[in-house]
C-alpha cells in the first residue's frame, strides 16, 4: 500500500512539473517581448530607451540569459513559492494571488459541493422514480443543464434575481448573498455532467444480477437502491470528480468576470488580456496543482470504496482464482 501511495504521489508531482514546463514553454516562446510589455504597461515605448537602459532592464529580469537558464531560475523560484513580479502591476505575483485565492477557493469549493449534492440527488431520483413521465423528465434534465453556456446562465440569474426581484446583489464579492448566483452558475453545468454519468452508471448497476439477488431477499426498492445500487453506481462516476473540480476553476474565470468578483479567475482573465506572463503561469500552475491533488485524492479513495481494488493482496492469474 505504501509503495502504491508513494508511486502515485510521485506521479502527481511529475504531472505538475509537466504542466508547469509546458505552460512555461508556450508562454515564453510566444513572439512577444516581455520588456516591451512591461514598458507598455508603464506607458513607455521600447524606442525611448537607450540600449544601455534596455540591457540593464533585461539583466534585472534575467532576460539576458538563455531560455534554459531562465527556466531553471523560474522553476526553482516557483518551488519556493515565488512566481516573480507581475509585469503590469509591479507587485509580486504571490501577493496578487494570495489576496484573491480565498474568494476563488470559497467559490470553487461551494460550487463543487453543490454540484456533487445536486448531481447525485438528481441521478438518484431519476433512477428511483417509477412514474414514467417523471423518470423521462428527470433523465433528460441534465442534457438541458449541460447545454446552456455559463455566461448566459449568469446573465439570466442577474436579470431575474437582481434586476427583477432585487433579492441578490448583481456584482461584488462581499457577504454570503454575493456567492449564491456565482455558485449556481457553476454548479448547473457541473451537476449536469455528474448526473449524466451517474444516471448511466445507476442504470447499468440496476441491471446487474446481484440487484436481483437483493430484491429476491425481499428488500424494498429503496433499500436496494440505497444499500446495493448506490455505492456500486458511484464507483465508475468517481473518475469524473477530478474533471468537475477542474471545471469549477475554469468556470471561475467566466463567472468572476461576469459578477465582477475580485478572485483569481478575474485576475487570470486580466492577465491573459494584458499578456502578464508571470501571473498566467502562476494561475495555470495553481490550477494544475488543484487538479492533480483532487485526482490523487480520488485515486487514493478508490481502494477504500471498492474492495476489489487493493494494493496489498496477492495478484494471481484470473484463471487460477476461479479454481475451487
Amino acid at each position: 500500500m505504501t509503495r502504491y501511495v508513494v508511486g502515485r504521489v510521485l506521479q502527481a508531482v511529475v504531472v505538475l512539473w509537466a504542466a508547469y514546463t509546458l505552460t512555461f514553454a508556450i508562454l515564453y516562446l510566444l513572439p512577444s517581448d516581455p520588456m516591451e510589455l512591461q514598458l507598455a504597461a508603464a506607458g513607455l515605448q521600447l524606442d525611448s530607451l537607450t540600449p544601455e537602459q534596455l540591457a540593464a532592464g533585461k539583466a534585472q529580469f534575467g532576460l539576458d540569459q538563455s531560455i534554459a537558464a531562465q527556466y531553471w531560475h523560474h522553476l526553482w523560484a516557483a518551488l519556493h513559492g515565488d512566481f516573480g513580479i507581475s509585469l503590469t502591476q509591479q507587485t509580486p505575483v504571490t501577493d496578487l494571488i494570495g489576496q484573491r485565492i480565498g474568494k476563488t477557493l470559497l467559490l470553487s469549493v461551494s460550487a463543487a459541493t453543490v454540484a456533487l449534492l445536486a448531481g447525485s440527488a438528481l441521478a438518484y431520483l431519476a433512477t428511483f422514480a417509477r412514474w414514467n413521465p417523471l423518470r423521462t423528465f428527470l433523465t433528460r434534465l441534465p442534457a438541458l443543464g449541460a447545454s446552456f453556456p455559463q455566461f448566459f446562465i449568469a446573465l439570466f440569474l442577474i436579470q431575474f434575481f437582481s434586476f427583477q426581484l432585487g433579492w441578490l446583489p448583481a456584482t461584488g464579492s462581499e457577504g454570503p448573498s454575493s456567492l449564491v448566483m456565482p455558485v449556481l452558475t457553476i454548479s448547473v453545468l457541473n451537476s449536469s455532467i455528474l448526473a449524466q454519468v451517474l444516471i448511466k452508471s445507476f442504470d447499468e448497476t440496476l441491471s446487474q444480477p446481484y440487484i436481483t439477488t437483493a430484491r429476491a431477499k425481499g428488500l424494498s426498492r429503496s433499500a436496494v437502491h440505497l444499500r446495493h445500487a448506490f455505492r456500486n453506481a458511484v464507483l465508475p462516476a468517481m473518475t469524473i470528480l477530478g474533471v468537475i473540480v477542474g471545471l469549477t476553476v475554469t468556470s471561475s474565470i467566466v463567472v468572476e468576470t461576469v459578477f465582477t468578483r475580485e478572485g483569481v479567475g478575474k485576475l487570470a482573465q486580466e492577465a491573459v488580456l494584458s499578456q502578464d506572463v508571470p501571473v498566467v503561469l502562476a494561475v495555470v500552475t495553481i490550477a494544475a496543482a488543484l487538479f492533480v491533488t483532487v485526482n490523487l485524492i480520488v485515486d487514493l479513495l478508490y481502494p477504500l470504496l471498492d474492495p476489489r481494488i487493493s494494493h496489498t493482496r496477492t495478484r494471481i492469474d484470473p484463471e487460477v482464482v476461479t479454481a475451487v
Partner: peptide, 10 residues
C-alpha cells in the same frame, strides 16, 4: 451465475 450474483462491495 454465482460470479455476478453477489454485491461486490459488501
Amino acid at each position: 451465475d454465482p460470479m455476478v450474483g453477489l454485491n461486490p462491495t459488501k
